[in-house]
Simulated assay, not measured.
Amino acid sequence: MSTTKDKTPTALTKKDFTSDQAVRWCPGCGDYAILAQMQKVLPELGIPKENVVFVSGIGCSSRFPYYMDTYGLHTIHGRATTIASGLKVANPDLSIWVITGDGDGLSIGGNHLLHVLRRNVNLNIILFNNRIYGLTKGQYSPTSLPGHKTKSSPMGSIEQSLNPVGVAIAAHATFVARTLDRHVKHMGEILKKAAAHQGTSFVEVLQNCPIFNDGAWEPVADTKMRGDNMLGLEHGQPMVFGKTVKKGVRLNGLKPEVVELNDTVTEDQMLVHDKEDEMQSILVSRMQYPDYPIPLGVIRQVERPCYEDQLIGQVKLAQETKGKGDLKQLYHAADTWEVK
């Protein structure tokens, strides 16, 4: 909401969150769809513009703050989550969105990402995953598939790729979700759920780079193929999918398996999605195409105290029991030297 001169609240619109900067991504880039949904969703959250901050690192996705008519920080490679954490502790009233990519967030920023997730700082992390370094012109990234040929891996990558949602769940994140740039309605709903969550929300957006890795997510991006390759997750609902909803995922021992539904293999035998079950979330996060459909939706969501609330609570307790302290006294409490 915004306020007019007579203090009457006025509803915000997408235009209110759109800056006057020309958007400079390659034609066809999935980033456009993510930007459009963010600008559409924010007015619906009822958060004053002056309380919204976008923090980014380095990469194509990190131009995002320029295109949002909010406060924003375009920071350094991999450190957006660190800066955002400090900002949230300094001003807990802010709604903070960290915009990062698979290269920025999972390579040099991987260590920082792990710690903001385990601390559960109340902010939102949106990771754009196109499985490539786009800004630096097409080197393989931490999420590139083994064997992928790029300018920096001309004979094919020999590295095991990272699974972003798997990394987040391993770090004990309290909200982990996945969506798709071309599935705009779904993306909008996921962004709303992330914003409503109290704690660190982590959203992986499967995003296409038409220049350096076109078609990376075609099995779920192509509407003709999506039905048979996408598993839409709904809490409390069985894991069934397919164009005619005739496929499902059930447990075979400790391993999930894809089966065809029929008279003897029925829907009630399938796994029921439970976003609060940590062990199941690990299994779901490990499902990867082509052996499994690609899970989209909220994979994991639980409640846990937020980092900044606990930190501020400790500060208040210390002040109540020991007083507010004296900075000058602190400086002179230990040995000092005079340099002449």
Results as ranks from 00 to 15, higher is better:
267 E>H: 03
241 F>I: 06
93 D>W: 00
142 P>H: 05
135 L>N: 04
70 T>M: 14
277 D>T: 10
238 P>I: 09
160 Q>F: 11
125 I>C: 04
210 P>T: 11
111 N>Y: 01
20 D>F: 06
271 L>E: 02
209 C>S: 03
243 K>L: 10
44 E>C: 13
187 M>I: 09
330 L>Y: 05
108 I>G: 01
78 G>E: 06
64 F>V: 14
39 Q>A: 10
107 S>K: 00
243 K>Y: 00
137 K>E: 07
36 A>K: 13
234 E>G: 00
224 K>C: 02
166 G>R: 13
242 G>E: 02
185 K>I: 06
94 L>Q: 04
183 H>E: 00
104 D>H: 09
48 P>F: 13
194 A>P: 02
293 P>F: 12
212 F>V: 06
115 H>Y: 10
293 P>G: 12
261 L>R: 08
18 T>Q: 11
228 D>M: 05
340 K>P: 03
275 K>C: 11
179 T>F: 00
64 F>N: 08
80 A>L: 09
258 V>Y: 02
308 E>N: 06
127 L>M: 15
317 L>I: 05
280 Q>P: 03
205 V>M: 03
314 Q>I: 03
277 D>V: 11
303 E>N: 12
105 G>E: 07
157 S>L: 12
185 K>D: 05
162 L>I: 14
32 Y>N: 06
247 K>D: 00
221 A>I: 04
209 C>K: 03
220 V>T: 14
236 G>D: 07
181 D>G: 01
6 D>E: 10
111 N>F: 04
278 E>V: 14
153 S>T: 15
231 L>A: 08
9 P>S: 05
286 R>E: 11
325 G>C: 12
151 K>M: 06
79 R>K: 15
202 F>H: 08
37 Q>P: 01
104 D>S: 09
272 V>W: 06
99 I>Q: 09
80 A>Q: 06
64 F>L: 15
190 I>E: 04
126 I>P: 01
242 G>F: 01
106 L>R: 01
179 T>G: 01
43 P>N: 11
245 V>K: 14
317 L>N: 11
91 N>I: 04
258 V>M: 07
150 T>F: 02
256 P>H: 09
188 G>Q: 10
261 L>Y: 05
207 Q>I: 07
293 P>D: 09
128 F>C: 07
15 K>Y: 03
40 K>N: 14
88 K>P: 08
213 N>R: 11
74 H>P: 03
51 N>I: 02
89 V>E: 02
79 R>P: 05
246 K>C: 01
164 P>I: 14
194 A>K: 08
3 T>H: 09
70 T>Y: 12
256 P>R: 12
338 E>M: 06
54 F>I: 13
136 T>S: 10
33 A>H: 12
92 P>F: 07
8 T>G: 00
138 G>Y: 04
231 L>R: 06
331 Y>C: 06
238 P>A: 07
323 G>I: 07
124 N>R: 15
286 R>S: 14
14 K>P: 01
6 D>K: 12
273 H>D: 02
87 L>F: 04
182 R>I: 02
221 A>K: 10
247 K>W: 00
32 Y>R: 12
216 A>E: 05
62 S>W: 00
213 N>E: 05
126 I>A: 06
146 P>I: 05
310 Q>M: 15
